[in-house]
Computed example of a mutant assay.
Amino acid sequence: MRLTVYTDYSLRTLMYLGVRGQEHLATIQEIADAYQISKNHLMKVTYDLGQLGYIETIRGRGGGIRLAMAPEEINIGGVVRKTEEDFHLVECFNPESNLCKISAECQLKGALNEALKAYIAVLDSYTLADVITTKDALANLFGITRN
């Protein structure tokens, strides 16, 4: 299973904001600089994370973004489900475009589906808090000064 860049950037944004802390606002440019990724890509990601209720955006001078809930309340599996377009690991997972000749008798689809469920189940067992336990080290890598 490979996550899209969109999901990767969504998770990275949440991690950055989790390390930054809910009492501090961050900017999209700040996050883009920390990861050395495109600000334009992050603009859509942050907008969508706001629509999903994961982050809060504050407009105006001195504005920015922050987590809308505690890191313990943000489930990694839930974020992945909401940010991935689909989970079509192979052609036959998409009934609308499946042209595979062996689909009716293929046993691989079942095995892959079982693996996908296990993958998501593992992600469901983690929260954002679980993946940012080394906040000071991460803050140092991000160039964030923590109080």
Score class of each variant (00 low, 15 high):
146 R>Q: 13
23 E>M: 09
141 L>F: 09
76 I>R: 03
78 G>E: 15
143 G>Y: 04
136 D>H: 11
139 A>V: 06
138 L>E: 12
84 E>H: 06
110 G>F: 09
72 E>T: 13
110 G>Q: 11
116 L>Q: 13
100 C>Q: 08
76 I>W: 02
109 K>Y: 12
6 Y>F: 15
113 N>W: 10
127 T>S: 15
91 E>D: 11
76 I>N: 04
15 M>E: 14
138 L>R: 09
67 L>W: 06
51 Q>W: 02
55 I>F: 06
57 T>C: 05
123 L>S: 11
126 Y>K: 11
71 P>R: 05
6 Y>S: 09
35 Y>M: 03
131 V>L: 10
128 L>P: 08
81 R>N: 05
50 G>L: 03
58 I>S: 08
109 K>W: 06
104 A>D: 13
130 D>T: 09
90 V>I: 15
129 A>K: 14
82 K>V: 00
8 D>H: 10
89 L>P: 00
83 T>A: 01
4 T>Q: 13
36 Q>C: 00
91 E>T: 10
143 G>R: 04
10 S>W: 00
93 F>Y: 10
75 N>H: 00
85 E>F: 04
135 K>C: 06
107 Q>H: 11
55 I>C: 05
85 E>V: 06
45 V>H: 00
69 M>F: 01
65 I>N: 00
90 V>A: 14
39 K>E: 14
78 G>V: 01
5 V>Q: 14
67 L>V: 07
82 K>S: 14
91 E>P: 06
59 R>K: 15
117 K>E: 15
143 G>M: 04
122 V>Y: 15
31 I>H: 00
20 R>S: 08
60 G>P: 08
64 G>E: 02
128 L>R: 11
8 D>M: 08
107 Q>F: 02
71 P>V: 03
37 I>H: 03
65 I>D: 02
28 I>A: 05
40 N>V: 15
92 C>K: 01
20 R>A: 13
102 I>R: 14
147 N>Y: 12
53 G>P: 09
114 E>P: 00
65 I>F: 01
45 V>E: 04
24 H>C: 02
115 A>W: 10
3 L>K: 02
17 L>C: 04
60 G>Y: 07
25 L>T: 04
48 D>A: 04
15 M>C: 10
50 G>M: 11
88 H>E: 12
39 K>L: 03
54 Y>T: 07
9 Y>M: 11
100 C>D: 07
8 D>Y: 10
54 Y>V: 09
143 G>S: 04
45 V>Y: 03
38 S>V: 06
118 A>R: 15
88 H>C: 07
71 P>H: 02
1 M>N: 05
